[in-house]
Amino acid sequence: MNSNDEEIRSADGTRLLVRRAGAGDPVVLLHGSGGGLHSSASVAARLAGSYELWMPARRGYGPSDVPEGRKSFKDDVADLLAVVETIGRPVHLVGGSYGATLALHMAAAEQSRLQSLAVFEPPLFAAGQSIAPLLDRYQAALEREDAGEMSTVLNDVTRGPPAIVAAFAAAPGDKRPDPAEARRSAIGWLHDLEALTDDSTGTARWSSITVPTLLMQGADTWEPMPTTMNELAAAIPTARRVIWSRQSHFATMTAPDLVAVALRDFFAGPDSR
């Protein structure tokens, strides 16, 4: 998949690096916490033959700018709006995890900019002042470069079961993470936690979304995600929903074919089914 990187400036001057690949109807792919330009590569490679993919590194994640001060979803939406304005026509918007929560915010604020909305497991339960102590713990751990404590805090935020946390930690084996990439991810997580802390857990607010919407989830993802997705489906009753068996919150990485097929079918519209 051939791709090009370009810079886009948000309304406040924040520089965003955006990866572009393919040709056709525009699709914007939003990465989750801890991700970056590479996060959507597997899914994008399966769509690039039919669509023009735009993959921004969100603010707070290098090589995009890391502005001073506390980040909010309002900042994220402004950044996304700058990307869509650069594209120059309504887009199919796809978000995973934190990127899915951002996609919901964008759809609620700027529906006229979208052709459709597709979200994979937004962590709507991990928000509000209840996680403020976790933000404080994470920031303190980041300042003293305590990777173990940062990981513990993030597990508390995501509520991952111990067995899954252990398996995920063991997956790299003896391979050491690149220090620069690890630092970039850690800083991005901090700013995502800031926005989540200032957000709310309410799902009724998404009932204003009227663009065609696809809700995606893994059947094996742990609680409270299944309950959260049920609540989101009730808030957007016109949404189409797909649940993949034997998949969890990592489906966009472990099963990119499933994700790409679901998106292709959804983008094609009801007349194709």
Rank of each mutant, 00 (worst) to 15 (best):
D5L: 15
D5I: 08
E6V: 13
E7W: 14
I8G: 07
A11N: 07
A11M: 00
A11D: 11
D12M: 03
T14R: 00
T14F: 01
L16V: 11
L16A: 07
L17N: 13
L17H: 12
V18P: 07
V18H: 08
R19C: 08
R19W: 04
R20D: 01
R20H: 13
R20T: 15
G22N: 12
G22M: 12
G24V: 02
D25F: 04
P26F: 04
P26H: 11
V28L: 10
L29S: 02
S33R: 05
S33G: 15
G34P: 06
G35F: 07
G35M: 09
G35E: 04
G36E: 05
G36N: 04
L37C: 10
L37N: 09
H38N: 01
S40H: 14
A41C: 05
A41W: 09
S42P: 03
V43N: 09
V43M: 08
A45T: 09
A45K: 11
A45W: 03
R46W: 08
R46Q: 14
L47K: 07
A48M: 03
A48S: 15
S50W: 09
E52P: 00
E52H: 07
L53S: 10
L53A: 13
L53I: 15
M55P: 04
P56I: 00
P56L: 01
R59T: 08
Y61C: 07
Y61R: 01
G62V: 05
G62Y: 06
P63F: 09
S64Y: 14
S64V: 12
D65K: 11
D65M: 12
P67K: 09
P67H: 07
E68G: 12
E68I: 00
G69C: 13
K71F: 12
S72P: 02
K74P: 00
V77A: 13
A78W: 00
D79P: 03
L80R: 02
L81C: 02
L81G: 00
V84A: 11
V84C: 09
T86M: 06
G88I: 01
R89Y: 03
R89V: 13
L93W: 01
L93Q: 04
L93D: 05
V94C: 08
G95W: 07
G95P: 06
Y98M: 06
Y98T: 11
G99I: 08
T101S: 14
L102P: 01
H105P: 02
H105G: 00
M106K: 01
A107S: 13
A108D: 03
A109T: 12
E110M: 06
E110F: 02
Q111I: 00
S112T: 14
R113A: 15
R113G: 00
L114G: 10
L114K: 07
S116I: 06
S116W: 02
S116K: 11
L117V: 09
A118Q: 07
A118I: 02
A118H: 03
V119Q: 07
V119K: 05
F120W: 13
E121W: 10
P122E: 06
P122N: 09
P123F: 04
P123I: 08
L124A: 12
L124T: 13
L124H: 06
F125E: 05
A126H: 03
A127M: 10
G128H: 14
G128N: 02
